[in-house]
Design a protein around this nucleic acid. Sequence first.
DNA 1: CATGAATGAGTCTTCATTCAT
DNA 2: GATGAATGAAGACTCATTCAT
Lengths: 220, 220, 220, 220
Amino acid sequence: MKTKDRIVTAALLLFNEQGESNVTTNHIAAHLGISPGNLYYHFRNKNDIIHRIFLQYSDHLRKSFTPTTGAANASPAVWFHYLDAIFYVMWEFRFFYANLNDILHRDQELHLQYLAVQQELTVNLQALLREMTSQKVLAIPDEEIEPLTEVLRMLVSFWISYQSAQSLTPHISQAVLYQGVARVLLLLKPYFHPDKGLELATLMAHYQVLGSVPGDPFHK
Amino acid sequence: MKTKDRIVTAALLLFNEQGESNVTTNHIAAHLGISPGNLYYHFRNKNDIIHRIFLQYSDHLRKSFTPTTGAANASPAVWFHYLDAIFYVMWEFRFFYANLNDILHRDQELHLQYLAVQQELTVNLQALLREMTSQKVLAIPDEEIEPLTEVLRMLVSFWISYQSAQSLTPHISQAVLYQGVARVLLLLKPYFHPDKGLELATLMAHYQVLGSVPGDPFHK
Amino acid sequence: MKTKDRIVTAALLLFNEQGESNVTTNHIAAHLGISPGNLYYHFRNKNDIIHRIFLQYSDHLRKSFTPTTGAANASPAVWFHYLDAIFYVMWEFRFFYANLNDILHRDQELHLQYLAVQQELTVNLQALLREMTSQKVLAIPDEEIEPLTEVLRMLVSFWISYQSAQSLTPHISQAVLYQGVARVLLLLKPYFHPDKGLELATLMAHYQVLGSVPGDPFHK
Amino acid sequence: MKTKDRIVTAALLLFNEQGESNVTTNHIAAHLGISPGNLYYHFRNKNDIIHRIFLQYSDHLRKSFTPTTGAANASPAVWFHYLDAIFYVMWEFRFFYANLNDILHRDQELHLQYLAVQQELTVNLQALLREMTSQKVLAIPDEEIEPLTEVLRMLVSFWISYQSAQSLTPHISQAVLYQGVARVLLLLKPYFHPDKGLELATLMAHYQVLGSVPGDPFHK
DNA sequence: CATGAATGAGTCTTCATTCAT
DNA sequence: GATGAATGAAGACTCATTCAT
């Protein structure tokens, strides 16, 4: 692996473990056993590293949330796909969610890119909900689509922050993130078509189980 | 007003205006025209000031969310009271919501107090929802009370952070907070008893108007 | 002596001895046995210190070059005064002359102040030459007053740089500065009225002697 | 053109444009599209490049200021030649004049070469003035030849620095350099033989025109 | 109560230079 | 000849906190 990639990987690891603000460029360099100068050879500054990580993040988002049309959206398999994708991004880039505002307000360029990605997501999510409504999976009044997508985005974006505030340690476990995924379903539950009760129950059960792993295997 | 109180007031003002992390103890002292030493005579450290602010915060919360029992909970006046109280606390202590995790994870004692208050709130909120359900205002299945309160708490706790992330400036307007209050209603809407449609519509209209002040009078 | 003044004095000393660019804020602090933080308590940054020194510099200039009118300007005593003042400022702030452009182009505010002082000086110097011309001491054609003042200003401003370039060590001695003063007289010599030959010769002899001290007593 | 020469050419260009201290070895390499390692293959270090530029500089000087003997020195054509040569060297190596002391005191070997060239120049210049005096073009008392050559050298060596200090931008235009050439004539004017008034006036007019180009064509 | 000077560890960043390939 | 990754010492500056008066 190239040094440049090793830096990104190490930064992501340390950011996720210790919080972005507690990880200095010197920490990252020391962690890799390279000199600070070398790190600055590959990246102009710390924000530049975060930029690179953000690219990975938005790539994942774009790949995972390309909307499908038609009957596919009536299949639980597709629903699993989306919910798993939510979980994956939340976990892999949890430092980003945990320090969203610090990071965005320090770097306007990144903030603009973030807003662009959010805008795409909003459009896709609304299309998805409308499609599911027309597939008779959901029954969401048209005027509620918009506020609902907003609440859903907010839930996903700040679930980690919320959970971090609920716990004395800033670390979050995968289980806690699965609980967040389950909450997404909870918010949609009132709108689910009665016919789909069984499928919905299966989905919810799935993520509730994942969300209740007693001993978190990832952090002691 | 005593110096000690003036410090708390000034700190709250500056924190809300500029963000807690951007306000140093020297800023606060300079703002009041006192010496940093004097500030440290009254408070052991910066966290100690935040502690005092937090006391005001939790006092407000406790006063405002004491649950009522019986028919009172069927009255829109009471609902207004709660929603206005939510708004008030969000606005008055917005710096706290904007930097929740930074503040909590730096100071375990404060964090414990925060969790205690949240626990009280959770109990009260659940009682309120149950009471409203028994008053035939809402119809929330018992097993959904718990997750719903959690989502509501989360919505209120991170609405400011969410909105800050959506905007290029970290400043928050009152209008934006009223939109958050309106979202609380939105989440409850599916559970409202059909009979209460009119009252609900009035409530929602009220906060939507407040949330859509075109020119924000607080920040240009 | 207050710490703030001690910092200015130490900075001036070290700047003059080692060159402004070779003296860091940490050097200054270490030289005084104070912490870097303390230095930054008294001054916002390194330029701020230079600013303060520049104030002393321009104060001296303004005090020393207030022009006199009338017969006084025909007296050798007054000429000595001006030439000694030139020497004093060159010596006391030699670091400034030695690094003029680096310092000015790094700090626009200082640069503007510098230009303002230079403008004053130009006006005063031109008035002086005209006065001496009308007192029959000099005979400078009116159209040459302007370019001549410019050359004189330039000579004084860059004499130190010039001499530094001529020597393998960057240090300059007082003798070398006196040679600069003598050069000022040299440039004016062609314009001196024949009647004043004796006075001029005395003046020149005075500064030539000072400029030829064999062993420089100030630097080994 | 060989890489080694391309490096020298690029370095000179960038130094003149941006100032020697603002141009890193990496800048030069990047400007040429070569690697820093390659640059260091051809030159031991940054000073080594400056060394090479200095060779060009001194070659020009030596070629241009070889003194002529006899009647040739009474011809305005020769005077033009010398003054144009002064201009050419000032313009082509302006970075060197702008940072003379930084460059010399960093590199003793270069400094020694510089002093040697200056010594040659001094000898040649004095010979020239003496020759012109014996050709009845100038009338300089023998004891003033020496100090006058020194002032002239100083004027030429620091005219750029002086002008840079007078302007808020560090950039220098050709017009400004022509003004410097005109100042050389100004300093000699008092010594010019009355018979040569016409020729002198022509010369001065020539360089004054060049020195007063309104819109500087080289920098916007 | 109050002053304000002082501390010092820590942060990001730069750049001439080296070296294995 | 050339690449480009790597080094490391150094610099300016910040800020919560302490302490003598």
